[in-house]
Write a protein that binds this DNA or RNA. Structure first.
Ligand code: MN
Ligand code: MN
Ligand code: MN
Ligand code: MN
Lengths: 236, 236
DNA sequence: CCAGAAAGTTAGCAGCTACTAACTTTCATC
DNA sequence: GATGAAAGTTAGTAGCTGCTAACTTTCTGG
């Protein structure tokens, strides 16, 4: 029942400067992954991409080459991949879709913030730009998603500043929770139980030596959390 | 960013009787197509499947064999394919997804009834059962989609009776529009302009000889439509 | 009944994506 | 600077899905 099928990706849409080419689901996920890794400064290393996507490093080499052939990344052999302008545009488009979807599903269909990521991870490859913009409009064009992540605008811009984590906080300092990783549902449920969510204020009360657990005050509760958790919670 | 990837389809969900196996987008569309063709009584012929999916007949032979291997269809060589119980269950699940999606997109996100089919055709493969049931609940468990097609229930039952078309009507008889094909956006826009939509009453005023055009009365308007159009409008 | 047309199948090819195994390059450490 | 570990690449394999070309089966009309 589909309207068309191609083995080769086909051109789609009107496309202003450089035409938007149809990519596979996998290619789109690679671009997002490379974007996220590159945010830390360096080119995206094969092993990091592989780990994030739960695939073997050998598989990444092949896909990265295909992406390079399509002009979406630049590769320096044995060194890693960087998005081209076109690649970054596409990555940001996918991230916009993902975050609008998460926002819509949580606010309009009462998804839990811990399960919504997986659903968005699939839907982002199937929605049309039209549907995404309708959802965005229905929500009043939100600036952040349910996990506090900034939503890229339709024009391809984002305010994606690097934030400190609770782990970086000095003892005694307060901060407002800005954002947290949405990848691990169990972590999100745990943080939810602790009352740690975007917008909440907290204070680092104590830090045990040798990378030990941290004591944080949230409201009038105190919680002891591990460093792995503290590194996933971004504050402002 | 996906949680897992497999080359081989993997098992998913809990599965009561026979486990629900993950199928590709293509396999799911084949099952739907075979279901629709089989509604006319006969086994689904290779050429018909191919025409509906816009692919070459030779490609169908291969996929049908794979579906047979998975126990979703039974094939009689040179004769056509029929869904097994499992295949029909899966087809109906996809049709439920498709129609709930269309209903949701039209009523909640103001999609036009002419464009919504294409969007649903992609989304149906990406949504979780959970999301579909949330949408169904939000809509109050609708019985028909925006084109008048019955929505299979979550338990796998449908009221999918065969209907007559406007073309079958005797001159002078009235009938209520029940349903129409949703495949061709241009046809839907045309019917919309004529005021022909599910629920509307119409009367066949005249029929020109030799399979000629039909005159139908809709409200106090009269329209002359071709037989090809008349065959796409189902009445009760 | 039989010949040609229509329908259907098989074979061979290609691209995508993932895997493992084997090899190469780069890095880190002494 | 050598050397072993870590990172990365290539080669070969496999399944899915589509294609065209060539072949086989079935249908149809005289
Ligand atoms: Mn997410
Ligand atoms: Mn994804
Ligand atoms: Mn439809
Ligand atoms: Mn579909």
């Amino acid at each position: 029942m589909p309207s068309a099928k191609r083995t080769k990706p086909m051109r789609r849409g009107i496309a202003s400067g450089s035409a938007a080419v149809a990519l596979t689901r996998q290619a789109e996920d690679y671009l997002k992954t490379i974007y996220e890794i590159e945010r830390n400064g360096d080119a995206a290393a094969t092993t990091l991409i592989a780990a994030r996507l739960h695939i073997a490093p050998a598989s990444v080499s092949g896909m990265v080459r295909r992406l390079a052939r399509q002009g979406l990344v630049e590769v320096e052999r044995y060194r890693g991949a960087r998005l081209t302008i076109r690649g970054r545009r596409r990555a940001l488009q996918m991230i916009r879709r993902h975050r609008i979807l998460e926002s819509y599903l949580v606010t309009r269909l009462h998804f839990g913030w811990d399960g919504v990521h997986e659903e968005a991870e699939r839907l982002e490859h199937a929605v049309s730009p039209d549907l995404i913009e309708r959802m965005a409009a229905a929500l009043g064009h939100p600036a952040v998603d349910p996990h506090g992540a900034p939503i890229p605008r339709a024009d391809g811009t984002v305010d994606d500043m690097r934030l400190r984590t609770v782990g970086d906080l000095a003892v005694g300092r307060s901060a407002r929770v800005a954002r947290m990783s949405d990848r691990d549902p169990a972590l999100l449920r745990y943080l939810g139980e602790l009352g740690i969510r975007p917008g909440v204020s907290l204070r680092l009360v104590d830090r045990a030596p040798f990378e030990g657990p941290l004591t944080v005050a949230v409201g009038r509760m105190r919680h002891i959390i591990g460093t792995a958790v503290a590194r996933q919670v971004y504050v402002r």
